[in-house]
Design a protein around this nucleic acid. Structure first.
Length: 129
DNA sequence: ACGCTGACTATTA
DNA sequence: CTAATAGCCAGCG
């Protein structure tokens, strides 16, 4: 990953004529915002909620743009399937992610959430899917 | 226009 | 049990 460290502002340009792709990013942000404090979820869960469970990577990519999004998105509450903070290095200070999680009552050891299953928040279930 | 990379996940060896 | 591989889709050189 030597390259590809550019601002994702171009993400807004991906939509030529108001396709649904733009909506996809919006949906990701929306779902992420629904995550209650002290809870976490995975990229795959959000992807599945949107119907694109096979494209969990796109959710992660959406998070990339979440930082520049107008509305705040608790990206720190979104981790991978193992409960590991794989995206911590994408935060302003990488430590900010686990810092926020610990602040919300979630224990993080070695970049991994303790009792992940216990704090897991499934959008498919919680949002009524 | 082609190919590599990536905040993922599930499957196969 | 852990390691490698294959789908996934959009952005960038």
């Amino acid at each position: 990953m030597p390259s590809s460290k550019k601002p994702v502002e171009k993400l807004r340009t991906i939509n030529p004529s108001g396709s649904k792709d733009k909506n996809f990013f919006e949906l990701v942000y929306e779902v992420a915002r629904q995550i209650p404090k002290g809870k976490v979820t995975s990229y795959g869960a959000i992807a599945a909620c949107l119907g694109t469970k096979s494209s969990a990577r796109m959710v992660g990519w959406a998070m990339n743009g979440a930082h520049h999004a107008k509305l705040k998105v608790p990206a720190h509450r979104v981790v991978n399937r193992n409960g590991m903070l794989t995206g911590k290095f994408h935060f302003s200070p990488p430590e900010k992610m686990e810092q926020l999680l610990k602040k919300e009552g979630i224990k993080v050891i070695d970049d991994k959430i303790v009792d992940f299953n216990k704090y897991f928040w499934d959008p498919i279930v919680e949002l009524g899917f």
